[in-house]
Design a protein around this nucleic acid. Structure first.
Length: 856
RNA sequence: GGGCGCUUAGCUCAGCUGGUAGAGCGCUGCCCUUACAAGGCAGUGGUCGGGGGUUCGAGUCCCUCAGCGCCCACCA
């Protein structure tokens, strides 16, 4: 039931029409009756539902979709789910504002809670389960706009397979995953120095650190030798940590300080005796070559503290302010405790910054500060979500082993990275850099109100002491649990936080502890083992390069532990989209020029996808309106050329007849098909290597040459009903449409529907076996060159293209002459050559043509 | 400090194993040619970042320098 060809084909309305049709017919629905080897599965990244999507998302998700469509046409059953990341601080902020609430895990669950709504001040505190419910509610609303965008963009996602990162399924998988690691000792708790954000008052992991350049100053400060041998000068950017100083350290080979090793010095202002130690990490070139070790100023301090077996003297509290301490008490010995206390009292309760200002004044007064501080700019560690420098404080955390302090595991993780196929390959280096630079296990504990709870309770003994080392575990069937409101088996709510009772773990997991299970979550590991078996291990993980150290690494780690294998065979790493003007576009909501929905409605989805296809894996790409224009033109060209081919066929009375490749006898036709055969070959190879850009770079020039030269040359013969021409045109059109289908799903589907049954997106990817063998590609090439020259003659004479040519002489090398001569009749027709068309052998290529005189 | 990527026409980029520089856009000119005027045809345009080297021959291989972007780093 092929519909009639449109008179004036147009792109208008195609997106609404086909996205609705695809939805209704379920073309992209995953068929779970297939076996694993018939499946191609994708571990889709879940975009955060808080922020707006931007063109970069459209670009990288299109890359994945192009790949998905290719494999679907290759006959694979494609598992292409979609996720929403609603387990993030952004979401917390958004939910808080939208509903006028704030999350307080100490509150009990309230089943009947109704949020007051936006603008409520102060926000209403609610329990964590209540907060999570609102989060899911908002996510559901936001999903709608995401669905609209992705659908419009033509993503061939199966919308019956979606997941979130805070919903019950994710929590269940996430908590189960954690408990399984706990059982095997791969997750453990420890009290340890922890990188700490003083505003959010939470621990964070190494993977979420970033450096920011901040102004600071070297302060040259005098320590006093205990043997009265004079002063030792150190330089520090953090003089406020002098009370936390537990040692000085210099390089073992540093002759200046060798005499001091093993001796003691006293700290300025506080008069605490600290040893002088040797350690190879101390850099003789830096500052005065001898440094003070504080607990803790930075991660080097932690290393020194651990390796030199030093005591702890903590002065920074979880809020970033200086803690009260009692000088003279054990661990806080001072030569003159009263003087030390007096000095310290000046600092207590101040932020690090305030304390620094005050202590510098005091050091100046005591003449222990030498000279003026030297201003510098230096990198300081921040949480990527934070706004104040991180501190390092000591407290109890849950860790997952990651190779940071286990060489065997580190090597195993490096081997996994090596086993994974990276696209592009050089991204592997980033993974290796990261694994090699790990300096500790993965701290998954976050002291945040919102997130997936750590699914543990702890017994409290009769004396009220919490037993952190022997947690109470939930049963698998009870997952997910929230220990802040749920009660462990065998206890009652009344026993919460009571002697002889239990304490719920108040903390949540790092979001990556959940995201790293995305293959497990969406594949049904914890709730649909049959599905999981069909999709795991996945074929593809598409993602951005900046989260290689987090999402990619952690996912590999979790899969390594749980399944002893990679979670996917291939990782496709996308680049960034940048603005061509290098300037930030306005982000004012709605009508920003880079709003993805605007791009799609303005230029058309196929056009935007065409642009995206130009971005190779791992390469940045400019947001270029020009490319949208070109893509749109290509789509229109496909409509028109297709209509032309099919209308000629209809005119010849051959409409609907099956394509018969064996009818292609003409040398020019066979030449065109020979070229097409190599295009199929190249494009297929490129796709197999995840290089969709290379694929379209082969397909597109073929198509334009097909239109500009082949169609023009063959036109006359086709109109006359030549069987070879008709068969070649139909065959080429069928192949070209299918080659373009992954890139331009709308226009190709539209054209396909004019003549074929079923969706092109379930049609088979073209193979070279469809093309008759043989054919000399030189014939079309040579004929096109001659045709070009004939046109040039007319252009230079400023005459119309239909101006007849009285006579023409073509000169070229023998082989080229032979090739062009094979298309003589078509050349005469296309070039409107009325008189002689002569071919002569010559050294170079030239065409002399004489036009007929214009009518008087 | 270590590493990765990039540097080819005004712009965006192809140039895979070395063999006389390519595409599109832009620009200029021409053409209502019955698939396409939101089009078609043709033309203009480059000492392939700099400097060395290997080779009969290098955008393509080696060394080195520079700029841009990014990753990592124990930055007192």
């Amino acid at each position: 039931m092929a519909p009639s060809l449109p008179d004036k084909p147009s792109l208008e309305g195609l997106e609404e029409k086909w996205s609705a049709r695809w939805h209704d017919t379920g073309v992209y629905r995953f068929d779970r009756s297939k076996s694993r080897d018939e499946v191609y599965s994708i571990d889709t990244p879940p975009p955060t539902v808080s922020g707006r999507l931007h063109p970069g998302h459209v670009c990288s998700y299109t890359h994945t979709d192009i790949t998905a469509r290719y494999w679907r046409m290759r006959g694979k059953e494609v598992f292409y789910p979609m996720g929403w990341d609603d387990n993030s601080l952004n979401v917390v902020r958004r939910v808080s504002i939208h509903y006028g609430v704030t999350c307080d895990p100490t509150l009990p669950f309230d089943a009947g809670f109704e949020p007051p709504g936006e603008g409520t001040s102060p926000p209403v505190p609610i329990s964590r389960p209540n907060f999570v419910m609102l989060c899911e509610q908002l996510t559901t609303e936001l999903e709608k706009s995401y669905y609209d965008l992705w659908t419009r963009a033509g993503l061939s996602v199966d919308w019956t397979h979606t997941y979130t990162t805070i919903g019950a399924r994710a929590q269940r998988a996430s908590q189960w995953g954690f408990l399984r690691l706990l059982e095997r000792g791969l997750a453990y708790t420890a009290e340890a120095p922890t990188v700490w954000d003083v505003d959010f008052r939470t621990a964070i992991a190494q993977a979420e650190l970033e450096d920011r350049e901040l102004p600071g100053a070297y302060h040259r400060i005098a320590f006093h030798r205990a043997d009265d041998g004079g002063d030792v000068f150190i330089e520090t950017t953090r003089p406020e940590l002098i009370p936390a100083c537990v040692a000085l350290v210099a390089h073992p080979d540093d002759e200046r300080y060798q005499p001091l090793f093993g001796s003691e010095v006293t700290t300025p202002l506080f008069g605490a005796r600290v040893p002088v130690k040797a350690h190879p990490l101390a850099d003789p070139e830096k500052g005065s070559g001898i440094a003070m070790i504080c607990t803790f100023g930075d991660v080097t301090d932690v290393t020194w503290w651990r390796e030199l077996d030093l005591p702890v003297r903590s002065v920074i509290g979880p809020d970033g302010r200086l803690l009260p301490v009692t000088w003279g008490a054990p661990g806080w010995e001072a030569g003159d405790a009263d003087r030390a206390q007096a000095a310290y009292d000046e600092l207590v309760g101040k932020t690090a910054k305030q304390a620094q200002r005050r202590i510098v004044e005091m050091l100046g007064e005591s003449a222990e500060l030498v000279g003026e501080p030297k201003p510098i700019t230096h990198p300081v560690k921040f949480w990527e979500n934070g706004s104040r420098p991180l501190e390092i404080i000591t407290n109890r955390q849950w860790f997952i082993r990651n190779g940071g302090r286990d060489e065997e595991l580190r090597q195993a993780m490096l081997a996994r990275g090596n086993e994974l196929k990276w696209h592009p390959d050089f991204m592997r280096v980033r993974y290796e850099n990261w694994v090699n630079g790990l300096n500790g296990d993965w701290n998954i504990t976050r002291q945040l109100p919102f997130g997936v709870p750590i699914p543990l309770w702890y017994p409290i003994d009769a004396g009220g002491v919490v037993d952190w080392e022997n947690p109470i575990l939930p049963a698998f069937d009870d997952l997910p649990v929230d220990p802040s409101t749920d009660v462990p088996k065998g206890y009652t709510e009344a026993q919460r936080d009571q002697p002889g009772g239990f304490a719920g773990d108040p903390n949540v997991m790092d979001t990556w502890a959940t995201s790293s299970l995305s293959p497990q979550i969406v594949g049904g590991w914890a709730d649909d083992p049959d599905l999981f078996e069909k999709v795991f291990p996945y074929d593809l993980r598409p993602q951005a390069h900046e989260i290689i150290r987090t999402w990619l690494f952690y996912t590999v780690l979790r899969s390594h532990f749980e399944f002893d294998r990679l979670p996917w065979t291939d990782a496709a790493i996308s680049g960034f989209v940048f603005d061509p003007t290098r300037k930030k576009l306005s982000k004012s909501a709605g009508n920003a020029p880079d709003d993805p929905m605007n791009l799609l409605t303005q230029h058309g989805a196929d056009a935007v996808r065409y642009w995206a296809a130009g971005g190779r894996p791992g390469q940045d790409i400019a947001l270029d309106p020009n490319q949208f224009k070109i893509g749109r033109r290509l789509a229109i060209k496909i409509l028109n050329a297709s209509k032309f081919v099919l209308s000629i066929e209809a005119g010849a009375g051959a409409a609907g007849a099956p394509v018969d490749p064996s009818a292609v006898a003409n040398a020019l036709d066979r030449s065109m098909l020979a070229r097409l055969r190599s295009v199929i070959d190249d494009a297929t190879r490129a796709f197999d290597d995840y290089d969709y850009t290379r694929a379209i770079e082969r397909i597109e020039p073929f198509f334009w040459n097909f239109c500009d030269n082949y169609l023009e040359l063959v036109k006359g013969r086709a109109y006359a009903g030549d069987a070879s021409a008709l068969a070649a045109l139909r065959l080429a059109l069928s192949v070209v449409l299918r080659l373009f289908a992954p890139f331009l799903p709308y226009v190709t589907e539209e054209v396909w529907s004019w003549r074929e049954e079923g969706s092109i997106h379930r049609a088979s990817w073209p193979t070279i076996d469809e093309i008759p063998s043989g054919g000399d590609t030189e014939i079309l090439a040579a004929a096109a060159d001659v045709l070009s020259e004939l046109r040039k003659v007319k252009t230079e004479a400023k005459r119309s293209m239909k101006t007849p040519i009285a006579s023409a002489v073509v000169r070229d090398a023998a082989a080229r002459i032979a090739a062009a001569r094979a298309a003589t009749d078509d050349l005469r027709e296309a070039g409107v050559v009325e008189g002689d068309l002569v071919f002569q052998e010559a050294d170079g290529f030239s065409v002399d043509a004489t036009l007929t005189e214009p009518a008087a």
